[in-house]
Amino acid sequence: MQLHCMEDELEELGARLVVVGNGSPSFIAGFREKSGFTGALYSDPSRVLYRSLQLERGLRSSINGRSMARAVSAFRSGHRQSQVQGDAFQQGGVFVITSKGESTLEYRSQFAGDHPTTSEIRRAVVEAAALSNKGQSYDRT
């Protein structure tokens, strides 16, 4: 799943997409060029945020049957893994958070290629938007 392909849809739903990687900030420009992503892009080279969010890290989560199957599938679809710029053993995740700081989706990838579906993200954003708007309405009264 290429999350940045949902950027326009997320914006229409009132959400902001922020992408964080774990390599040096100097890798950000190259990532933009390669991915075509023009939105908010940051780095956490110390991986403090990754640890705070309890994301998986390790050899077993990076190289296993499921991750290899996803890699083969991605390769067949035309995707090519370039040189890793960051921690090769770190897994990612997707979090949808309301304006009050409550989460409606906490997805921690268990292996390389493990991502939430677009419908899971869309559903969580709609729920988060409703909760955020609820709070704003309450604040105005």
Partner: peptide, 13 residues
């Protein structure tokens, strides 16, 4: 005021 979608990627590669 709206929701945040925070995506942490594996790496920049």
């Amino acid at each position: 005021q709206g929701p945040l979608v925070l995506a942490l990627v594996r790496h920049f590669g």
